[in-house]
Structures are given as structure tokens and as C-alpha cells.
């Protein structure tokens, strides 16, 4: 479901290299790493040399080895979780100059959190190059209790904070980096449609 009639639902056009950027930062997960290797194949080696990759995912020793090799000659930093990856990104942006280009490749929560971090540093969302790869899982905010539900793969989904059963809408907030979840059985409590694994 990456096509939606709801206009707030983000579109991810795919990675393309900014050959003029003096420095690149790419945040990706395991699935997104494949998009990064393809990106490098479309650019010169100097592009990769100007690039720092934050690979935020839990990796086996073999995966670490393979991916570090595939993504060279860029500097690859491996972070065990998405939250660690975003924290590291924010640290790098703290001292970054103009001429930096930001990229994100992988799941939607990863892209959303990169774009959200970018906004905090006055990077326009349109200048961030994004590609969706891998899982369709979503980050959802419960509109009732305002809690975030991570890695949502079903619709409806139970709010992990207030317990209401939520319909996951395609309405998306960049500021919150989340889709909107609204109580699905508000009219008739208990009248809940079957759970579908829509976002595997």
C-alpha cells in the first residue's frame, strides 16, 4: 500500500546521487543497504568517498562483514538499533555545514525518523532523498492517548499504551513521523473487523 488517495501519505521517489554535495550522510537498514549499493553503482567512486553510512539494524557477524565490504569505500558505521542510528545522525548533523546531502533507505519508520531529524536541523524534507525497501511496517500514533506504537504490521492494531483498538489511517504526519491511529469500534464498542496483516 504505497499508493494512497490520501495526500499526506509520503511518496519515496528512490535514491539518486547529488554529485555536487561535498558530503553525504546515508541512513539505512539491512534492506535499504541494497538500495545504497545500487546508488553507488550510479555514481563515481569519489561520491562514496565523501559518504558516511549509518547502518542501523541488528546484524550477524557475516552480515556485518558482507555489508561493510559492499558499501566500501564509504565510511560505514553500524548501529544496533534504529534509535541508536537516529541518535548518531543527530550528532553528525550538529556540526554539519551546508553542502551536506541526506539520504534514507529502508523501512518507513527509518525514513520517517531521518526526515524528522532533518526537520529539526532545518533540512527541508524535499531535499532529503529517500527510497523505501523491505518491510511495510509502520510507526503509528494513537490519536487518543498520543502514545507511539512501533513496528505495526496489522490493521487494526491494539494501542500498546491505552489498549484501544485502532484503525491505521494513511494520514501521515512528518512532524511526528507517524501514521494516525483512531479507535475503530467507537460507534459500537466491540464491533471490530478481522485483523489483517497489511504491513508485513
Amino acid at each position: 500500500m504505497t499508493v494512497s488517495t490520501i495526500k499526506s501519505r509520503p511518496i519515496y521517489p528512490g535514491l539518486s546521487p547529488d554529485l555536487n554535495a561535498r558530503r553525504n550522510i546515508i541512513v539505512c537498514d539491512k534492506a535499504g543497504a541494497a538500495a545504497v549499493t545500487e546508488l553507488f553503482s550510479r555514481a563515481d567512486s569519489a561520491f562514496a568517498e565523501r559518504t558516511t553510512i549509518i547502518l542501523a539494524d541488528s546484524l550477524s557477524a557475516t552480515e556485518t562483514q558482507t555489508l561493510s565490504r559492499d558499501l566500501a569505500p564509504a565510511a560505514v558505521e553500524i548501529q544496533p538499533t534504529l534509535a541508536d542510528g537516529i541518535a548518531r545522525l543527530r550528532q553528525l548533523l550538529e556540526t554539519a555545514p551546508m553542502g551536506l546531502r541526506l539520504y534514507a533507505a529502508g523501512s518507513e519508520p527509518l525514513i520517517g525518523l531521518v526526515v524528522q531529524a532533518g526537520l529539526d536541523f532545518s533540512i527541508d524534507h524535499l531535499s532529503i532523498r529517500t527510497e523505501h525497501r523491505g518491510s511495510l511496517m509502520r510507526r503509528v500514533q494513537c490519536v487518543h492517548c498520543k502514545g507511539y506504537i512501533e513496528n505495526v504490521t496489522t490493521n487494526p492494531v491494539k494501542c500498546t499504551h491505552c489498549g484501544l483498538t485502532l484503525l491505521v489511517r494513511d494520514h501521515y504526519s512528518r512532524r511526528l513521523a507517524a501514521f494516525q491511529g483512531v479507535c475503530i469500534d467507537a460507534e459500537v464498542p466491540g464491533e471490530i473487523p478481522p485483523t489483517e496483516a497489511l504491513y508485513q
Partner: peptide
């Protein structure tokens, strides 16, 4: 600006 890697949005 473009050659110095400035995004169009800025």
C-alpha cells in the same frame, strides 16, 4: 550554490 551542494530548497 548548486555546485557547492546546496539543495534547491535553500
Amino acid at each position: 550554490a548548486k555546485l557547492l551542494g546546496w539543495p534547491d530548497e535553500n
